[in-house]
Amino acid sequence: MSLTPVLRRQISLEAISIGLATGAYGISFGAIAASSGFSILQTQVLSLLLFTGASQFAYVGVLGAGGSVLSGLATASLLGVRNGLYGMRIAQLTKPAGWQKLFFAQITIDESTALANKYDQSQDTARWAFLAAGLSVYVFWNIATLTGALLATSVGDPKTFGLDAAIGAGFFALVAPRLNSRLNKLLALAAVLVALALTPLLTAGLPVLATALLAIVLAKRAD
């Protein structure tokens, strides 16, 4: 099925609404990063360059709680492994040529992959969906990040406005939709218990990282 003007319009509108909805929570990322000790510029650079929500939250979460750069890097990077698989799917669906791959890679995220999958009836429709969703989220996410960072730096103590409580709720909201099987639910419960049990024993950042081992062992068994 070819990319008709009607279909192009429909996909674009859908991409904009995804961008608005996802982008909006860039406000919470901006606010949390800026109140976790990152400068406004660093916060913005994370959204411009890292550009994958869960990893961004994880990186500032781990460092903000006193974890080392190394555990922040490891946690954020392990969370980003799925983007590699999305890249594979995007390459199959949209067949980017040479230099386009460099640009396509940056906007390869949950939302752009999901919309490309939804419109996978042809290379043209998948490509349009991928680009529209990727760019739309990119623009709104970055505008929202700046807004959040500016708001947070103007409110003073982040605890007054409950910004510290927002971080945990943010992670919960990221993980909850993934708890769609018995295996995932059990893994989540185990990860919570292991991380809490290790907190008094290891330096900040490591208890979270240790739970990656649970996932690695489980994935091996399911192989």
Binding site: L78, L85, P207
Partner: peptide, 27 residues
């Protein structure tokens, strides 16, 4: 193995992060 891991890693790490961000205060 790789696709399973890509699904399970975020579940483990994000759950752990939720717990630490809510109950953790230093060590």
């Amino acid at each position: 193995y790789v696709s399973k891991l890509a699904v399970l890693l975020p579940v483990a790490l994000l759950s752990a992060l939720t717990a630490i961000q809510v109950f953790g205060s230093g060590q």
